[in-house]
């Protein structure tokens, strides 16, 4: 099987400091992949290794079967690098067209492609402006636009919505969701709810180690429901939920949010049972989600491991 990314015993150190330690994982093409972890976990370093910005200290890393930075990946892999800026001396159109020409397009195709990707991020009207004339959020969107030039097979986005206002963040999420049928995405973010909505696979890094590689909506989560009730004066919710037939455990993970673990074989219609119980007690709910949230999935496991 050919993988999007294969890492074997991958390590990266800066002097005495080991930032990534012995990572081994394989990622197939398909649904977007989330790269998640606390500050300093090594996410950006892993991104830099994948993009060929940094050499690995040891181990093996392959992207689409090639060494990162290899000429075989030009035009096939693209990225939104963190904190990278365009040249302030040239207009967006000039620079994106130049990128297109580097990717093998002729001048007119490169210009048309530049206008297309700028319109994807709602910046077509700013094509003749320089990067210095744009706000932080607009610069971020231009950087996302350059990552979409041509037809990349793999798009790596480092914090794609950081610094964007909610409207533009939503637009970027919608764009990724729309394009995820055409390309594979790897997204690094601190926004766990955003990753949950977009991604199918999660790589969880902590202290430079791969703590978890899991599916967001895997079969192991099928015996869980996450219930969010509307704010109100509900009392005794926990004992009542615990008495429902088929329930194994109930925990209140956040205010008005309950995670119910149930025996799916014993109670195949548990969701209906739960809804009837809500109606019986007059509790109004905001959300009922099948499975655990990504946050619960990740942190329940890491807490257990700790």
């Amino acid at each position: 099987m050919s993988y999007l990314i294969e890492a074997r015993n991958l390590s990266k150190s800066f002097g005495q400091k080991t930032v990534l330690q012995d990572l081994t994982f394989s990622l197939p093409a398909g649904e977007p992949i989330a790269l998640i972890g606390p500050n300093g976990a090594g996410k950006t370093t892993l991104f830099s290794l994948l993009c060929g910005y940094l050499p690995a200290s040891s181990g093996e890393l392959k992207v689409l079967g090639h060494k990162p930075g290899s000429s075989a990946l030009f035009g096939r892999v693209s990225a939104l690098p963190q904190d990278a800026l365009l040249d302030p001396n040239f207009s967006l159109l000039t620079q994106l067209s130049f990128f297109g020409q580097l990717q093998g397009m002729n001048k007119s195709t490169a210009e048309a492609e530049s206008r297309r990707v700028l319109s994807l991020v709602d910046l077509a009207a700013n094509a003749d402006q320089k990067a210095t004339a744009l706000s932080h959020g607009m610069r971020k969107r231009v950087a996302i636009a350059q990552a979409l030039m041509g037809s990349p097979e793999l798009v790596m986005l480092d914090e794609p919505t950081a610094g964007l206002d909610p409207v533009n963040a939503l637009q970027v999420r919608q764009l990724i969701a729309k394009l995820s049928n055409e390309a594979s995405f790897i997204i690094s973010s601190h926004n766990i709810f955003e990753l949950e909505r977009l991604c199918g696979t999660v790589l969880y890094l902590e202290h430079g180690k791969l703590v978890q590689q899991s599916q967001v909506h895997s079969a192991s989560t099928q015996g869980y429901l996450t219930l969010t009730l509307e704010a109100g004066a509900q009392t005794d919710v926990l004992p009542i939920l615990r008495q429902l037939p088929g329930v194994i455990s109930v925990s209140d993970s956040q205010k008005h949010e309950y995670v119910l673990q149930f025996d799916a074989e014993l109670a195949p219609d548990f969701d209906l049972t739960l809804l009837m119980a809500l109606r019986q007690h007059g509790w109004r709910y905001r959300m009922l989600t099948k499975g655990q949230t990504l946050e619960q999935q990740l942190f329940a496991v890491t807490a257990k491991q700790a």
Binding site: C51, G69, L85, F99
Partner: peptide, 14 residues
């Protein structure tokens, strides 16, 4: 230092 080389090295060799 600006990070522009990161955009360039994704499409062309050093």
């Amino acid at each position: 230092s600006r990070g522009t080389l990161r955009f360039l090295t994704l499409r062309s060799s050093r």
